[in-house]
Lab assay of single mutants.
Amino acid sequence: MDVFMKGLSKAKEGVVAAAEKTKQGVAEAAGKTKEGVLYVGSKTKEGVVHGVATVAEKTKEQVTNVGGAVVTGVTAVAQKTVEGAGSIAAATGFVKKDQLGKNEEGAPQEGILEDMPVDPDNEAYEMPSEEGYQDYEPEA
């Protein structure tokens, strides 16, 4: 019985440690998101679009440190934060509304985080759909 109880105690310690790591990862992701939003706020009209992409990228980098179902929630929060940063930029006159959601080359930025393969159960990952990809044929 002692062996059984000791095993359960060790398992509990492992769960607590994993929860603490997840909590730490979420806190880091939130900190990076805040950094990115402050970065966007300090940019001029020309830099705002690039700044919004930076927020998304920093958040995406930190999301990889967070495991399990938390990833889905962090990704949703990050996307809403990026959308909010863009709205703030438009409201303050840093950028025109028609410039939001495009990178410096004018290509749409939507789907940055949505296409990231995420499995809350950590069982399997699927690649994003290939609808947006084109076949590449090298020139002879």
Score class of each variant (00 low, 15 high):
residue 38 L to D: 01
residue 109 Q to L: 07
residue 44 T to W: 09
residue 28 E to K: 13
residue 99 Q to D: 13
residue 121 D to T: 07
residue 88 I to H: 03
residue 51 G to K: 15
residue 89 A to N: 04
residue 73 G to R: 07
residue 135 D to H: 10
residue 8 L to M: 03
residue 136 Y to Q: 13
residue 101 G to V: 08
residue 3 V to G: 01
residue 9 S to M: 15
residue 30 A to T: 03
residue 84 G to E: 07
residue 66 V to A: 09
residue 51 G to A: 06
residue 49 V to C: 05
residue 99 Q to P: 05
residue 107 A to W: 05
residue 80 K to P: 02
residue 10 K to L: 14
residue 98 D to K: 09
residue 22 T to W: 14
residue 73 G to W: 11
residue 74 V to Q: 01
residue 40 V to I: 13
residue 135 D to R: 07
residue 69 A to I: 04
residue 22 T to R: 01
residue 52 V to Y: 03
residue 26 V to L: 08
residue 121 D to A: 14
residue 73 G to P: 05
residue 76 A to T: 08
residue 134 Q to R: 13
residue 11 A to N: 00
residue 59 T to H: 02
residue 83 E to N: 07
residue 62 Q to D: 01
residue 113 L to C: 04
residue 137 E to F: 12
residue 51 G to N: 10
residue 133 Y to R: 02
residue 4 F to Q: 00
residue 22 T to H: 01
residue 138 P to V: 06
residue 136 Y to N: 03
residue 62 Q to Y: 06
residue 127 M to L: 15
residue 54 T to H: 13
residue 62 Q to G: 06
residue 123 E to H: 09
residue 138 P to C: 10
residue 123 E to Q: 06
residue 136 Y to H: 14
residue 80 K to Q: 06
residue 78 A to H: 09
residue 24 Q to F: 09
residue 8 L to G: 00
residue 10 K to F: 13
residue 54 T to E: 03
residue 29 A to N: 01
residue 139 E to Y: 14
residue 134 Q to N: 13
residue 100 L to W: 01
residue 77 V to L: 10
residue 62 Q to M: 11
residue 68 G to T: 12
residue 73 G to S: 10
residue 2 D to L: 08
residue 37 V to P: 00
residue 21 K to F: 14
residue 104 E to G: 09
residue 19 A to D: 00
residue 29 A to T: 05
residue 39 Y to G: 03
residue 97 K to G: 11
residue 130 E to H: 10
residue 14 G to T: 15
residue 40 V to D: 00
residue 80 K to M: 07
residue 6 K to G: 01
residue 137 E to T: 07
residue 31 G to A: 11
residue 43 K to T: 05
residue 53 A to F: 15
residue 50 H to D: 12
residue 67 G to K: 03
residue 126 E to S: 03
residue 24 Q to A: 15
residue 17 A to I: 12
residue 70 V to T: 02
residue 118 V to Y: 07
residue 13 E to V: 03
residue 13 E to L: 01
residue 134 Q to C: 12
residue 87 S to D: 07
residue 76 A to K: 15
residue 71 V to W: 14
residue 72 T to C: 08
residue 125 Y to G: 11
residue 105 E to A: 07
residue 55 V to P: 01
residue 104 E to V: 12
residue 135 D to N: 13
residue 92 T to L: 07
residue 28 E to N: 01
residue 4 F to G: 00
residue 88 I to R: 05
residue 103 N to F: 03
residue 117 P to V: 13
residue 32 K to H: 15
residue 24 Q to E: 07
residue 67 G to Y: 13
residue 117 P to L: 04
residue 140 A to P: 10
residue 41 G to I: 04
residue 91 A to I: 03
residue 80 K to I: 08
residue 127 M to P: 04
residue 135 D to C: 10
residue 113 L to T: 07
residue 40 V to K: 01
residue 41 G to E: 01
residue 56 A to G: 15
residue 103 N to K: 10
residue 67 G to F: 02
residue 120 P to W: 03
residue 140 A to Q: 03
residue 80 K to G: 03
residue 96 K to T: 11
residue 8 L to N: 00
residue 35 E to S: 06
residue 45 K to D: 00
residue 32 K to Y: 06
residue 32 K to T: 02
residue 8 L to R: 00
residue 128 P to D: 10
residue 103 N to W: 11
residue 113 L to G: 06
residue 126 E to W: 02
residue 39 Y to R: 09
residue 20 E to D: 09
residue 96 K to Q: 13
residue 32 K to Q: 08
residue 98 D to E: 13
residue 136 Y to T: 02
residue 12 K to P: 00
residue 38 L to V: 10
residue 64 T to K: 03
residue 1 M to E: 00
residue 39 Y to D: 01
residue 131 E to H: 10
residue 28 E to R: 09
residue 33 T to H: 02
residue 62 Q to T: 05
residue 10 K to E: 01
residue 93 G to T: 12
residue 94 F to Q: 15
residue 83 E to W: 14
residue 64 T to I: 13
residue 21 K to I: 09
residue 66 V to E: 01
residue 109 Q to R: 08
residue 55 V to R: 01
residue 18 A to G: 03
residue 12 K to G: 04
residue 29 A to K: 05
residue 51 G to M: 14
residue 128 P to T: 04
residue 113 L to S: 08
residue 66 V to S: 03
residue 106 G to C: 10
residue 106 G to I: 12
residue 89 A to T: 11
residue 13 E to Y: 06
residue 103 N to C: 08
residue 135 D to S: 03
residue 79 Q to L: 07
residue 79 Q to P: 02
residue 117 P to F: 04
residue 58 K to G: 00
residue 68 G to Y: 00
residue 80 K to S: 11
residue 92 T to Y: 15
residue 114 E to D: 15
residue 126 E to Q: 01
residue 36 G to M: 13
residue 124 A to M: 11
residue 88 I to D: 06
residue 27 A to F: 10
residue 140 A to F: 05
residue 44 T to D: 00
residue 77 V to I: 14
residue 101 G to Y: 15
residue 62 Q to W: 04
residue 58 K to T: 13
residue 50 H to Y: 15
residue 127 M to E: 14
residue 129 S to G: 09
residue 67 G to E: 03
residue 21 K to L: 13
residue 99 Q to V: 11
residue 94 F to T: 13
residue 47 G to W: 12
residue 50 H to T: 02
residue 138 P to G: 10
residue 37 V to Y: 03
residue 137 E to K: 06
residue 43 K to C: 14
residue 93 G to V: 11
residue 46 E to K: 06
residue 1 M to A: 00
residue 17 A to K: 10
residue 40 V to H: 02
residue 122 N to G: 02
residue 113 L to W: 07
residue 101 G to D: 06
residue 71 V to S: 08
residue 21 K to D: 00
residue 44 T to L: 11
residue 25 G to M: 14
residue 39 Y to N: 03
residue 75 T to P: 02
residue 65 N to R: 09
residue 98 D to L: 14
residue 2 D to G: 00
residue 93 G to E: 04
residue 104 E to K: 14
residue 25 G to W: 08
residue 103 N to A: 04
residue 40 V to S: 00
residue 99 Q to C: 10
residue 107 A to T: 08
residue 27 A to I: 15
residue 39 Y to P: 00
residue 30 A to R: 02
residue 57 E to Y: 13
residue 4 F to I: 08
residue 40 V to E: 00
residue 112 I to R: 11
residue 29 A to Y: 14
residue 112 I to D: 04
residue 37 V to L: 11
residue 106 G to F: 12
residue 77 V to G: 03
residue 26 V to Y: 11
residue 20 E to S: 03
residue 3 V to L: 08
residue 35 E to V: 14
residue 20 E to M: 12
residue 122 N to D: 09
residue 95 V to N: 09
residue 35 E to F: 09
residue 103 N to E: 10
residue 1 M to R: 00
residue 14 G to A: 15
residue 95 V to Q: 02
residue 13 E to S: 15
residue 73 G to M: 12
residue 99 Q to R: 04
residue 127 M to F: 11
residue 69 A to V: 05
residue 42 S to R: 14
residue 59 T to W: 12
residue 31 G to R: 14
residue 36 G to N: 12
residue 109 Q to K: 15
residue 131 E to K: 04
residue 30 A to C: 04
residue 94 F to S: 05
residue 41 G to A: 11
residue 134 Q to G: 13
residue 51 G to I: 13
residue 96 K to Y: 12
residue 34 K to D: 00
residue 94 F to E: 06
residue 61 E to C: 07
residue 106 G to W: 07
residue 114 E to R: 06
residue 125 Y to L: 11
residue 87 S to V: 07
residue 110 E to T: 11
